[in-house]
Design a protein around this nucleic acid. Structure first.
Lengths: 97, 97
DNA sequence: GAACTTGGTAAGTAGAGACTGACCGTCAGT
DNA sequence: ACTGACGGTCAGTCTCTACTTACCAAGTTC
């Protein structure tokens, strides 16, 4: 999801300040459609929401989706680290046997 | 890095229990070389270390590299969330103006 | 309402990377 | 020493995806 540099940058920019597609594209080394496509992905993932503002669309971070995303991440790390810890302890027990 | 399903699974498996390449490949839907390549990437990233054990190589999680990796992640999220928070507060101030 | 701006979508391309089969080196057991 | 198991690497393929150009729809401005 946020593995792609460009997409991560876009996400950071939007987090810093709600912006339109054009504003984002102007400061990035990719074309406007590319930005639009990245925003679509971020939107589908629930990380951003867009709001029509006359001629433009303003993109901003979606706090709920962001929280859900982080929760997923945290869950992964919690599970993985717990498993690792347990495995490490078993190794210690094995060494001490 | 951990965006790829297979690689993430491999990492989780290694975290659960230190294993050889063959053991990992046996329970995964990909070939042994594929596992070997994923492990190389994980090793280059410092997430795992390998230790020769006679004929085989045992892969285990590298606590230091893991900590560094998590630190990077945390840094990204801390920065991003801080920026977002500040941006949100400015918006509130703007609305109240 | 005509011209301009903004942005989403479609189609096609190019590059990245995940995967396989083949090959080779190394170690263990006989 | 020979044989078999384990695993790293190479070369090639195939899929995925990020990107661009072109086009179209909707809105604003004069």
């Amino acid at each position: 999801m946020l593995g792609d540099r460009t997409r991560r940058t876009i996400f950071e920019r939007v987090a810093e300040r709600a912006q339109t597609v054009g504003e984002l594209a102007a400061t990035l080394p990719v074309s406007r459609p590319a930005v639009s496509q990245h925003l679509k992905v971020l939107k589908d993932a629930g990380l951003v929401v867009d709001e029509p503002a006359g001629n433009r669309r303003i993109y901003r971070v979606d706090p709920e989706g962001l929280a859900a995303f982080r929760a997923q991440l945290d869950d992964f790390w919690t599970r993985t680290l717990a498993a690792y810890k347990q495995s490490a302890e078993q190794d210690d027990a094995g060494d001490a046997r």
